[in-house]
């Protein structure tokens, strides 16, 4: 699975299939601080993702 984490600014290759919350747990990310997107589809914590998916993770915390 290819995961782009906006805050880090680069893409990672991961071996993962399961729920979005499982992925966030693996990456050590808090669900309330990120928005997970597959293509243009916004995903919920309970949504299932598979190895072939391209995932983008946006930080909802910005500004200042």
């Amino acid at each position: 699975m290819r995961v782009f984490i906006e805050k880090k600014g680069f893409e990672e290759e991961l071996q993962f299939s399961g729920s979005v919350s499982g992925l966030l747990g693996l990456l050590g990310l808090d669900s309330s601080e990120v928005l997970v997107v597959r293509g243009s589809e916004v995903l919920l914590d309970s949504d299932e993702i598979v190895q072939e998916d391209k995932i983008r993770i946006f930080s909802v915390i910005s500004g200042g």
Binding site: K7, F58, S62, G64
Partner: peptide
Amino acid sequence: PEKEVFLYSFLKGFGVPFTECPY
């Protein structure tokens, strides 16, 4: 909540650039 504000901005396609204050 902050996540709702972000989601609204995302769904409306505002294209707000990602920034985080370095401080």
